[in-house]
Design a protein around this nucleic acid. Structure first.
Lengths: 143, 143
DNA sequence: ACTATATTGTACGCATTCGTACATTTTACG
DNA sequence: CGTAAAATGTACGAATGCGTACAATATAGT
């Protein structure tokens, strides 16, 4: 079973997306990780570091540094969590929310230009195939 | 057109592969990038930095550091290129070649355990779908 | 209630990743 | 031939990304 071409294509496609998306995000003055956090926190009342990690697919160790920089930029705050003293409620500042409202729709539109022409059927088929591969990897991981 | 689920699945699948593959490579005492270089140079007479970059999908700036560490480990050498004074012929040492012969088949077999069960049809279909998406991203990148 | 275990987030070290700038050399073109 | 443009690899700074260890707190099992 020669899976290497498929594997190589997975990596190339991921990189192509990263390059395409990253170029636009950088022009907005952000990194990809920073944008992902802002996109996650926008229009919410805030959430814990764990929740942000689940949604952005970042591990907590990475997230600490990303949140530090966004906090230093004045885009978010870490407040004490009332129910759990280990945790923090991480929420956007007005400045952060304003940035979200500016960059999030703009980036979605930018991505739409690339993904839109593919059509819904192609996107759904691809999503399904990817999920099949991911499950195979996760099952094998359990050994 | 809601492409976000497909996009998220692409990232999750890539990460699942990276986690699965990386765990094994780390147990062999290497990083993913180092393994990719060794897998590329194994059983060859050596090649330029540019060629390695094309095959491993690493940009040259990244490659410099990875090659530095592999050279320091005594796994490869940088010789002067006879035809082009800007370039180097990067080739494995006997120690590097021996490592290649040990880890490359082992890792292929490890990956086979995850990819094999998918079957050839699924892999080919996924490769084709990915290529469609990648071309859409590359076309949009030209603007 | 007590204690072993799990969860939450940070600290740290190491290696990558990328963009930009740069020196050197090669190529293309007039 | 001579020069502008391109190619090759390195240097550098900033920011991930990840594994491990760690302190503080919460939860579960007894």
């Amino acid at each position: 079973m020669n899976f290497l071409p498929t594997l190589r294509e997975l990596v190339k496609t991921f990189q192509a997306f990263d390059t395409y998306s990253g170029r636009h995000i950088r022009s907005l003055g952000l990194t990809t990780s920073q944008f992902d956090v802002i996109a996650t926190l926008g229009n919410t009342q805030g959430m814990s570091c764990r929740e942000i990690g689940e949604k952005t697919l970042m591990v907590k160790g990475t997230l600490t540094g990303v949140l530090d920089r966004l906090e230093k930029k004045g885009l978010l705050t870490r407040q004490e969590h009332p129910e759990d003293k280990r945790s923090f409620l991480i929420a956007m500042t007005p400045k952060g929310q304003a940035l979200f409202e500016k960059v999030f729709p703009a980036h979605l539109q930018y991505l739409e230009a690339a993904f839109g022409p593919l059509g819904e059927e192609t996107l759904l088929a691809l999503e399904k195939q990817l999920k099949t591969l991911r499950r195979a990897l996760e099952v094998s991981s359990q050994d």
